[in-house]
């Protein structure tokens, strides 16, 4: 089987090195790119969070990446959204006025003022489902978070993990080939590495099946 091709979408400024390094460690061919030709030929899109809702959506539009991302998801290829990359999958966000990608019904809300914002540091993810992404990872394990907004999906069955910060919010979302996490697995030490290893395994297993 050929190596899995992953595109990490570059659309702002920030640290994408760590994600790339880990994905390569688990045997994928990974590029950080905003080149549509490269992205369209990849098996997996990793969509990190950079900047704020409006600047991110404007950048995606300027770079003509919106339809590309939508088509990738609709075609059934794997997609992993991290932090803001999860939030942008929804309809609208309280962080701005630009509509999001509208791939998942639901909205993005700001934490209430009685909690410090951003929610920053190590917090637990309570698993609500046996998802293969969490093979070998216990429920209530700690992951690294940094965000002031959280997603509120319309359908509760897509929620695979939750986290408590003043209120319970959805920290893991999965619908078919579309996966989104609010934490930063690439900054979550050993547990985060395990998460990426599971992700690559999941992509590989589906890719093998489709060969038959």
């Amino acid at each position: 089987m050929s190596q899995i091709k992953i595109s990490i979408i570059k659309y702002g400024s920030g640290n994408l090195h760590s994600v790339k390094k880990i994905l390569e460690k688990f045997g994928s061919s990974t590029t950080i790119t905003d080149n549509p030709n490269e992205i369209v030929n990849s098996d997996v899109i990793v969509f990190p969070g950079q900047g704020s809702n409006d600047t991110a959506m404007r950048q995606l539009r300027e770079k003509n990446l919106v339809d590309l991302i939508r088509n990738h998801v609709i075609s059934g290829k794997y997609f992993l959204g991290i932090c803001l990359g999860l939030q942008l999958l929804f309809e609208t966000s309280e962080e701005g006025i630009e509509p999001c990608l509208n791939l998942i019904p639901g909205n993005v809300k700001q934490f209430p003022r009685d909690q410090k914002r951003p929610h920053m540091g190590w917090n637990q993810v309570t698993l609500t489902d046996n998802h293969p992404l969490f093979n070998g990872i216990n429920s209530d394990e700690f992951f690294y978070f940094v965000h002031s907004y959280y997603v509120e999906p319309s359908a509760s069955k897509i929620i695979k993990g939750t986290t408590r910060y003043g209120l319970n919010f959805s920290s893991v979302i999965s619908i078919g080939n579309m996966i989104g996490v609010q934490f930063h697995p690439e900054k979550s030490g050993f547990v985060g590495l395990k998460f990426y290893e599971n992700f690559i395994e999941l992509v590989k297993s589906k890719k093998n099946l489709s060969c038959y």
């Binding site: 920030g14 969070g49 704020s52 600047t55 951003p118 940094v146």
Partner: peptide
């Protein structure tokens, strides 16, 4: 903070 996000 506007450009890179306040988290960083």
């Amino acid at each position: 903070s506007k450009f890179f996000g306040n988290q960083c």
